[in-house]
Design a protein around this nucleic acid. Sequence first.
DNA 1: CGAGGTGTTGACGATGCTCAAGGGGAGTGG
DNA 2: CCACTCCCCTTGAGCATCGTCAACACCTCG
Lengths: 248, 248
Amino acid sequence: MDATHQFTTAILIRKLESSFTLTSDERQALETLPMQITAIKEGQDIVRQGDRPSRSCLILSGFTCTYKMTGDGKRQIHNFQIPGDIPDLQSLHLKVLDNSLGTITPCSVGFITHEDLHKLCKRHYRIASAFWRETLIDGAVFREWMTSIGQREAYPRIAHLMCEMLERLRAVGLVNGYSCEFPITQSEIADALGITPVHVNRVVKAMRADGLIELKGERLNIPDWETLKKAGDFDPTYLHLESHQAAA
Amino acid sequence: MDATHQFTTAILIRKLESSFTLTSDERQALETLPMQITAIKEGQDIVRQGDRPSRSCLILSGFTCTYKMTGDGKRQIHNFQIPGDIPDLQSLHLKVLDNSLGTITPCSVGFITHEDLHKLCKRHYRIASAFWRETLIDGAVFREWMTSIGQREAYPRIAHLMCEMLERLRAVGLVNGYSCEFPITQSEIADALGITPVHVNRVVKAMRADGLIELKGERLNIPDWETLKKAGDFDPTYLHLESHQAAA
DNA sequence: CGAGGTGTTGACGATGCTCAAGGGGAGTGG
DNA sequence: CCACTCCCCTTGAGCATCGTCAACACCTCG
């Protein structure tokens, strides 16, 4: 196990430890988990709808998104992933991918074979549970997004997304105060929220005018968190961040 | 084990066997799984957003839906469940429920404690995998619905839902030809697809006029499956019905 | 310095929403 | 057995959020 590898599994270990304390046995199993580290440029697909992958990938750095194309060429983005996420963990039990996974920014990812994951899960029930739990949280995020897209208007929808991204980035230590990296273009926001890029632009303009967000380049700053939360009808329960409940 | 109980676990066993063949050991573990059978009237909540349930429920008969309320009182239905589904299996690993579960019709459900489920999963890796897989399919359905709501117009959105329900009901043997029970009201369709009941009504009217569906009382009949599929941009891959792939 | 992606803005139009009212069927109670 | 009620379905008219089309500014990068 070289130093680089230990560093990469650390992000996974830290994530799991937010739920429970690992035994030394479990910790060692994770530390020695074989992983193939790969750098991927922005705007590339990692896996595609219809693929039958034999491995899953852990995001080490960068942003990705999962998405699906409709018959007439429209794109729905289902989620954005940030470091620590495993966007295609589902493929461990679902043979054929029903969505694609692409990079938003240049990324470093670690591929883990399904064989190794199965071995790990079979031996360590709590780790299996933790992985299962991760996929359940993905599902919870899908439900919340569906609710946003189906029931909320464009303004709260965008506000909600900003809130979610900040909270998730905070959970992995990528937030300073109320400011974070936000490399997602307005077109991507549009595809994620079921609105057009033009309309995203207008709404973002209004949000800026209302003093809710500062969005420039690839940075997002939130001057008034409470108001943004309210505007976005944001309740972080669905993210199931243990630290939240612990803090509360 | 009384006769009634054996009958109830049968639906679960049949479902799992669509993925793989159970060993006699696994089969016995499932057959003896303690389950508390309960009848529930229509329009009742089984569990609610914010609850911390210690058991999950298997739908034995009837239709249910999972949903979530927004801050301003709108409802998003995330999925409809049919016999054989376990709508709140997620609560096995997520302490606090972030959505509610209610009945659409009178239902018979079987409650299984999380303790028993954990025991079962810990001992039988393949059963654990099958349950995990079920929750992953839920996630796949969420993604597809999100895509529908975000990218498709009302007409294909409704067509898509009809296609999905028919295919899922077919998989559990509840379809005759292209005709099935469909006890979902237009208001519920509206809450599921992010449109208003009034507009659902108009679109259903158009679909009837186009000869795509016959919807009367609690029955749905599809005279022209291929055209409906096309109109709904429906590709059943996301349902991950093994039988499909086997047949193809 | 040109090119291409991203952000920005205007004018117009359409899908779908709101409000409102009435019809039909199933269950209930007198 | 009939009236009453409630829920669901249905339809019309007007309106609003958001989409489409189009043009231009800005920035990064080769």
